[in-house]
Each structure stands twice: as structure tokens, then as C-alpha cells.
Design a protein around this nucleic acid. Structure first.
Length: 836
RNA sequence: GCGAGAAUGGCGGAAUUGGUAGACGCGCUAGAUUUAGGAUCUAGUGUUUCACGACGUGGGGGUUCAAGUCCCCCUUCUCGCACCA
């Protein structure tokens, strides 16, 4: 395999090389040489680099989006390898989940077989793309050797009190017939099947991620390598707010209604309390039978509404008066208690104090039901409070607030909360929007929850030594609103490990986000039979240096991934508590009209077909060249045209410009030993190498390619330069492109006479002494407008530049009849003559 | 509604971060070559003007010798959140 084969192909742009042969040859060679196989522990004398792309659900074929994601990561990994680092670039499969179960139902297949065969197909395709994955580290989450450790993780969380069972209103998808985590509900719609999500009261398993809420927010500041938009999305999602709780005693009764407020300074303006219809507080109200019936009907109605229905009535708030009163602990006033559906049961205490004066929602409600509005704030700057506006804490002064009147809001909040705490009717608190993570799923194809329910002993964890709790092979996957495992007697009926009486296994399986919350660690030690991973290996390879994936995971996976990493850090299993130093969100791929590619639309372009027709490297190059990696790509096959010409007509012919007889592998030249034309070529080369360094760091491969197109033109034109210089330029060009077109680059590299892989050849570094050309053309401006250009040394003194400029015809013309007021000369940049 | 980001030729996109706007590629035009088509090569290609020139980075203002880049206002689009008290 040396010289590219020249074929006569009447349909082709140029002599075409047999890309299939070349691709196969090098893919096999890389594998045989173990080029991408990371060692158990990184060499101590080398820098390590852990390149991770989000693993995938094995759906069989890969599409353009996958293709793009993986080739971006591949370019990073290959360049890091060329930089001399020890690279780990693993891949695996997020293999549990609904599609397998659906296929099982529809085509009467076993989900395990279906999944495994899909993995086979997908893996083979990725191998054809030439992605530098270390397949020896592959993890598959639906295999026993993996999910046994997901179960172990569950047991540890359970042991630490961070996994618990709770009866609560949960998101229920009527189509999937399972519960969903908040992260899986988008605007009240099931993320998977687009049905309207309902509320259902169920006993479910939760992970207590709220215990980590503060750290999850605070540590975002440590993540300097994460994009700001992801960090602010996480901050928003976690939604920490500081405020105070205050309790209102129910009149003539012995219990209190607690409310959470960020504006304790407005408590003298409370004219009603509002309870969420589904809150326990509303249930507790001691009502007359007639009132109870009325309120129950109302609650029922509110409960039946889906989130969307409730959300769509944003301005139409409804409520009902309970007939009861509570006492404002500050003013002693009687406050009517209402039930209102604009109050959320799952936030704060499920009850709010209604202050129509300074809260738009309370105001809308008060206006609708004719409740009084009492002013308790004025602005510090004396400005009018316009309609639809509230007084901020920064700009508020209390009024009509008893002994707390005439205070700036922030001071009022401080002294009022101190007063409340002393009096035992309130205190400063904080709240989060983030809720505990609901992980139970009523599905078959997932990790079984390793818990046994015993009537006598309660919840009994399965012993670690008894793991894994294996998923039984079954035949009936049809959803019945409960886990299919619940009907498998041989699975559920067990003896209690503690008291040996008859007990039941938990029949639910875990959310697949549990599987993906620790896979990054398993890659460091994928075959470990005694632990999730070996601590030394994990500490050596992790954290991940660059993590690439879609923005869609900003508030789901990426929060769970951080949470579990922190948990394992707290267990002492690892010595870091953030999983990834850098995060990169690649742009999506849609069709040429900007529509998402989907089977139902029939607009799916298969990278597999393109690779077959045009070769892997042409397809890769087209994708890289179309746009920077973080931008959306509207895919069109037209993108292939230019880069194909470049690859076949220019890059593939570079060997012809290379003098293999000249074995001088010199790479740094001195100005004194080069002719002026040679020096120009050399400087142009080095300037490009320097710029492309940054482009690679930013994953901007489009400009790398543009720049190498220019370089190839320059090399072609510089026929009369020293062979060792031209050879050097050719080598730099191929090395710079190698991460993008790995097969072609290897092939050419070998044809130049090198026997070692190009990926072990190092990375061309710019010569710092050759970054400035001897002459540049500089624009000459008159009053800021370009009127001519001069050819000048970049470091020429002002006098020289001026005299050159004044000799320039168009400059003379524009200066005619004007007096020069000022001359601004920035060497190497611009000359601007100000004249009047 | 709130928050973030974006807007540059016919198209995808460049622009050393305040210094010759439109690199590179596509497309288009003309020419060369070819029996022809395809392919290849050369030249041209922001708008306008016969030309000198004028105008030009969504719109309007400003700062500056100099603005795609910085500041203010507006429009449109994308994304995220959306009764979070």
C-alpha cells in the first residue's frame, strides 16, 4: 500500500484513489498496532488526555448527527495524540430503554437480543468511519457486568439515606405507561412520545439530589471550561432562592400554615393566604361538609388538568374561599384562607402569602376576587410604581408596616426575620426549584432495583454479594401500568434476607440516566469484577478533559452526571468532585431546509451511503468544512463538491511535490539561508501553523481546512524552492490535516517514505522567528477611508510609510487642496492621514 | 413575560478582537481545452456608476483618527425557563 492507484474514471474529477481499500487497510493496521488502545494507567512521563463523547443509544444505523459528533471528538483525540499525550478515547452504549421494549412487543423479540444485534451494527459502522475509539474499553449498560454496579451504586445511595421511597404526585405518561422524571417532561409533554403528562399519586424511588443542590450550584463557578449557557441553564434549573418562612396560625386551631417568601418585607400587606389545591395543607382544613365538598370538587378539577392546561391559563387564575381564617403573626390580623390553582404544591410549602400590592400574580388574583390591596412599599428613589411593576429589594422602603415601617427592604427583611425567629413563627430559609430525582420506572428493560419488600423487616437491600439482581427472561412485555416484572412470580417472590419469611422484590427498574451517571468512571477500568472501578485508575485518568455532546443534555444528564461524581467523591472512591473539565456542545445537523432529519419526514441523509460513494475522508471533510463545530449544520450534499476536489486533486497529489530522495528532515530555517521567495513561503507556512493551533483548540476545523487550501496553492506555485523546505511544507500540511482525514493522511505519509504512523509523528509547531513577512501591503486611509495601499516592511518607521504613501497616486489625488492635520501610523496595521 | 445568543454577498461561512470587510468553498459569468457532455485550467464575481466616485456587515443614534467589532435605543430570529411566591 504505497502509491495511490490511478484509475480512469470518467465520472470523477480527477485520478481517484481506491478509498475503500485505503480505509480498510489503515483501520486494520491501527487496530493491529493498538494505536488507540490506552494503557491501564497513563505513563507518568506523559500528559494524559481523556476525550469523551456522550455515548449513544444503539438504534442500529447511525445518522448525520452521530457522525458529526464522533468525527469532532475524533479530531480532538487524534490531535492530542499527535501532541504527544496519552489519550483515552472510549465508547459504549446506553443500552437500556424503551425502544428495545417497543421492538420486543411489536416484533416479538427479546430486548437483549435486539439490543445486542443493534450494538453490533452500530459498532461496525463507527469502525468504518475510522473513529479512534479504544474498543477494548467498551461498556454496555444492559449487560450484567455493568448493571450490577448500577445496583451497587443504588445500594450505596440507599445506605447513605440518599435513595428513598416516597408517595407523591408524579408525572405519569399515559402512553408510555410509566412515570417520568421532571427532566423528562418538557412543557408538560412527555419528551419521548409527545403525550400530555398527567399527575398520579404513586409510591416511587427517589435519589436525594437536593442534598447536593448547593454544591451543584456553587461548583459551577469551578467549571471554567464549561460554556456559560449550560452553566446558567443549570443554575436556573436548580433555582436556588433565599428568603424566609413565616407561619400563620389557623384561627381557633392548633396548627400553622407555613409560607415561603422572598419578600418578608411585604408581610404587612398580606390580604389573603393561598394554598395549592393538591397540597396536604388544603386537605387538612377543617371545613363544613358543604364547603369540603365544594373544595374537593375544585381540587379534583385542578388535579385532572395537565400541566399544559394549567400553564395555558397563565393569566386566568381561579380559586375558592375556604371560609377559614389565619392570623398574620406580625400584625395579628385575620387573613382569609383561599385555595388557588396558581399556587404550586411542589415548591416551597405549597402555600403563599398573598401580597397584591407587590406581586403581580397575587394582584391579578385579588382583583378577580375583590380582595383588598394594601400598600406596604414605596420606592427609595421616589419613582412612581407603574402598573405591572413591583418594587425591588434594592429600591424598596417599607410603609404601613408597624414597627418595621420606613426601613429599606433589605434591612426590613433582616430585622423581620430575626424577630420572627425569636418569636418562633419564622426564619430565614432558602428554596430550590430542583426536586429529588425520581428514578423508578414501570418498565422491563432497565436495571432492576435491588430492594426486597418484607412485611416484617420493611425495605431490605439485597446483599452486595448477591448482586446482580438479574433481569429475568420474560415473554410478556405489554404495559399494564405496572412493571412487567411485577407479574413474574419467579422474580418477585423471594425470601427476606433478614428474616427468611416470604417477601417481594421491587419490580420497578431504574431510569436510564442512572446508568449514564457513572459510565465515564467505568471506562477507566471497564472489566473490574470487584468494584465499579479501581480508585487509582480512575484518579489517574479522570476527570474527563473534554466532553462533547448535545446541548439537549444541559439540565438532565449533565446534572445527574455531576451529582453522582460528587457522591462517589464523598464515598472516597475518587479524589475529584467534578466529572469533566471542559464541555463542548456540538451543533445539530438538520436537512437543507433547516428541518430536523427524521424517518417520518423522509429527509434523512445517511452518512453510510455517502461514505460508500465518496469515501469516509471526503464525507468527514465536508462536514468539518461546512461550519464551525458548535454551529448548526444544514446538510446538503453540495458541501462535498469543493472538499472532494481539494482532497483528490490537491492533497492526494502532494506526494508528487515531495522529494523523497532528499532525506533532510529539517524543519526550522533561517532567513539568511533562504531566498526571498522561499522566505515568503516559510513565513506563510508558520503564520498558518500558529493560527491553526488556536482553531484546533476551538474545534474550528472549517478555517483549518481553508488555510490548508491556501497553503497547498502556495506550495504548488513555489516550484523553485529548496526541496527540504518544500518537503517540510508538505509534511506540515498533511500533519495538520491528519486528524480530519486520517486514512488519506496515513496513506500519503507512508508514500512519503515514513514507516511510523503519522499520528505518532508529532505536531508541527510554528517557528516564532518566522511569523513576520518582509513586506506587507498596508492600507492607506485618508480621514478613515482607504484610498490606496503601499508595500512596506511591517516595522518600517513612520517617515518611510508617509513618503511611500504620498507617492501614491490616489493618495495625492485625495489630499489635493487639503491640509494634513494629523498622521496616525500603526506599524504593520494601518496609516491614516487626517486632512481638512 | 424573563434570561442567553445571533443577524456579514445569490449560498455555507472568514476577519489577527478597534486597523485594507467579504479569506476559503459553493454557485454564477467569460475564455481555453474537448467530437460532445462531464471534468480540468485561466480570469472575473458586494451594490451602484461609462468613468472619477458613491454606498455597503438587520435599522437608528453615539464614542473614535479609525467600528462588523465598543456604548445606547429598536426590529427580527434561535435557544432555554416559564405562575418557582
Amino acid at each position: 500500500m504505497n502509491n495511490s492507484e490511478t484509475k480512469t474514471d470518467t465520472n470523477s474529477a480527477a485520478p481517484k484513489y481506491d478509498f475503500h481499500k485505503v480505509e480498510l487497510y489503515w483501520q486494520k493496521k491501527w487496530e493491529e498496532d493498538g494505536l488507540f488502545t490506552a494503557p491501564d494507567m497513563p505513563d507518568s512521563d506523559k500528559e494524559k488526555f481523556y476525550m469523551l463523547v456522550m455515548f449513544a443509544y444503539p438504534s442500529g444505523d447511525i445518522h448525520m448527527g452521530h457522525f458529526r459528533n464522533y468525527i469532532i471528538g475524533d479530531a480532538v483525540a487524534r490531535r492530542e495524540l499527535m501532541l504527544g499525550k496519552q489519550v483515552m478515547h472510549p465508547f459504549g452504549w446506553d443500552a437500556f430503554g424503551l425502544p428495545a421494549e417497543r421492538a420486543a412487543i411489536k416484533r416479538n423479540l427479546n430486548p437483549a437480543d435486539w439490543t445486542e444485534s443493534n450494538i453490533g451494527v452500530s459498532r461496525e459502522t463507527l469502525q468504518k468511519v475510522g473513529i479512534s475509539f479504544d474498543w477494548s474499553r467498551e461498556v454496555v449498560t444492559c449487560r450484567k457486568d455493568y448493571y450490577r454496579w448500577s445496583q451497587w451504586l443504588f445500594l450505596k445511595l440507599f445506605e447513605k439515606g440518599l435513595a428513598y421511597l416516597k408517595e407523591a404526585l408524579v408525572n405519569w405518561c399515559p402512553d408510555c405507561l410509566t412515570v417520568l422524571a421532571n427532566e423528562q417532561v418538557v412543557n408538560g409533554i412527555c419528551e419521548r412520545c409527545d403525550s400530555k403528562v398527567q399527575k398520579k399519586e404513586l409510591r416511587q424511588w427517589y435519589f436525594k439530589i437536593t442534598d447536593y443542590a448547593d454544591r451543584l450550584v456553587d461548583d459551577l463557578d469551578k467549571l471554567s471550561g464549561w460554556p456559560d449557557n449550560v452553566k446558567s441553564m443549570q443554575r436556573e434549573w436548580i433555582g436556588r432562592s433565599y428568603g424566609a418562612e413565616a407561619t400563620f396560625q389557623v384561627e381557633d386551631e392548633k396548627w400553622n400554615i407555613p409560607v415561603y417568601t422572598t419578600r418578608l418585607d411585604t408581610i404587612y400587606g398580606v390580604t389573603f393566604l393561598a394554598l395549592a389545591p393538591e397540597s396536604k395543607l388544603a386537605e387538612r382544613l377543617n371545613l363544613s361538609d358543604a364547603k369540603r365538598k365544594e373544595i374537593d370538587d375544585y381540587r379534583q378539577e385542578a388535579l385532572l388538568k395537565t400541566e399544559i392546561d394549567r400553564g395555558s391559563e397563565t393569566d386566568e387564575k381561579t380559586g375558592i374561599f375556604s371560609g377559614l381564617y389565619a392570623i398574620n403573626p406580625f400584625s395579628g390580623e385575620r387573613i382569609p384562607i383561599w385555595i388557588a390553582d396558581y399556587v404550586l404544591a411542589h415548591y416551597g410549602t405549597g402555600a403563599v402569602m398573598g401580597v397584591p400590592h407587590n406581586d403581580m400574580r397575587d394582584k391579578a388574583f385579588a382583583q378577580k376576587y375583590n380582595l383588598p390591596i394594601r400598600q406596604v412599599l414605596k420606592t427609595a428613589d421616589g419613582s412612581e410604581i407603574s402598573d405591572g411593576e413591583v418594587v425591588t429589594i434594592e429600591n424598596g422602603i417599607t410603609v404601613n408596616s408597624g414597627r418595621f415601617s420606613d426601613l429599606p427592604s433589605s434591612e426590613a427583611i433582616e430585622s423581620m426575620s430575626a424577630f420572627a425567629e425569636k418569636g418562633g413563627f419564622g426564619k430565614k430559609t432558602k428554596q430550590f426549584k430542583l426536586h429529588d430525582w425520581l428514578i423508578s420506572r414501570q418498565r422491563y428493560w432497565g436495571t432492576p432495583i435491588p430492594i426486597i419488600h418484607c412485611d416484617k423487616c420493611g425495605l431490605v437491600p439485597v446483599a452486595e454479594s448477591a448482586l446482580p439482581v438479574e433481569l429475568p427472561i420474560i415473554t410478556d412485555y405489554l404495559p399494564k401500568g405496572r412493571s412487567p416484572l411485577a407479574d413474574v412470580a419467579s422474580f418477585t417472590n423471594v425470601k427476606c434476607p433478614r428474616c427468611n419469611s416470604n417477601a417481594k422484590r421491587d419490580a420497578d427498574t431504574m431510569d436510564t440516566f442512572v446508568c449514564s451517571s457513572w459510565y465515564h468512571l467505568r471506562y477507566a477500568d471497564p472489566e473490574n469484577k470487584d468494584a465499579l472501578f479501581n480508585t487509582d485508575k480512575a484518579n489517574a485518568w479522570l476527570p474527563v478533559d473534554k466532553y462533547i455532546g448535545g446541548i439537549t443534555h444541559a439540565t438532565g444528564h449533565l446534572i445527574f452526571f455531576r451529582f453522582i461524581t460528587k457522591f462517589l467523591s464523598d464515598l472516597g472512591l475518587i479524589n475529584f468532585d467534578e466529572p469533566a473539565k471542559e464541555l463542548f456542545n456540538h451543533g445539530m445537523v438538520s436537512d437543507s431546509e433547516g428541518k430536523v432529519m427524521s424517518k417520518s419526514r423522509g429527509n434523512v441523509v445517511s452518512p453510510i451511503e455517502l461514505m460508500k460513494e465518496r469515501g469516509v475522508d471526503v464525507t468527514r471533510l465536508a462536514m468539518y468544512f461546512t461550519a464551525p463545530s458548535d454551529k448548526e449544520v444544514l446538510w446538503s450534499d453540495a458541501a462535498l463538491v469543493g472538499v472532494e476536489k481539494f482532497l483528490l486533486n490537491k492533497v492526494c497529489n502532494l506526494a508528487d511535490l515531495y522529494d523523497a530522495q532528499n532525506t533532510d528532515l529539517k524543519y526550522h530555517f533561517k532567513k539568511s539561508e533562504l531566498t526571498s521567495a522561499e522566505w515568503d513561503l516559510y513565513v506563510g507556512l508558520n503564520q498558518r501553523l500558529k493560527r491553526r493551533q488556536d482553531d484546533y483548540d476551538n474545534l474550528q476545523y472549517n478555517t483549518v481546512i481553508a488555510s490548508m487550501m491556501e497553503l497547498s496553492r502556495d506550495i504548488e506555485r513555489a516550484k523553485a524552492v529548496k526541496p527540504e523546505l518544500r518537503n517540510y511544507a508538505v509534511r506540515c500540511l498533511i500533519q495538520t490535516l491528519a486528524p480530519l482525514i486520517p486514512h488519506t493522511a496515513e496513506e500519503i505519509w507512508a508514500s512519503l517514505g515514513f514507516t511510523k504512523s503519522i499520528f505518532l509523528s508529532g505536531w508541527p509547531i510554528a517557528d516564532p522567528d518566522a511569523l513576520v513577512s518582509q513586506t506587507i501591503t498596508m492600507g492607506v486611509q485618508i480621514n478613515g477611508k482607504v484610498r490606496g495601499e503601499i508595500s512596506i516592511a511591517p516595522d518600517a518607521i513612520a517617515e518611510v510609510a508617509l513618503s511611500e504613501a504620498k507617492a501614491c497616486e490616489s493618495v495625492i489625488r485625495h489630499l489635493e487642496g487639503k491640509t494634513i492635520i494629523k498622521e496616525i501610523y500603526i506599524p504593520g496595521r494601518v496609516l491614516n492621514i487626517v486632512a481638512k
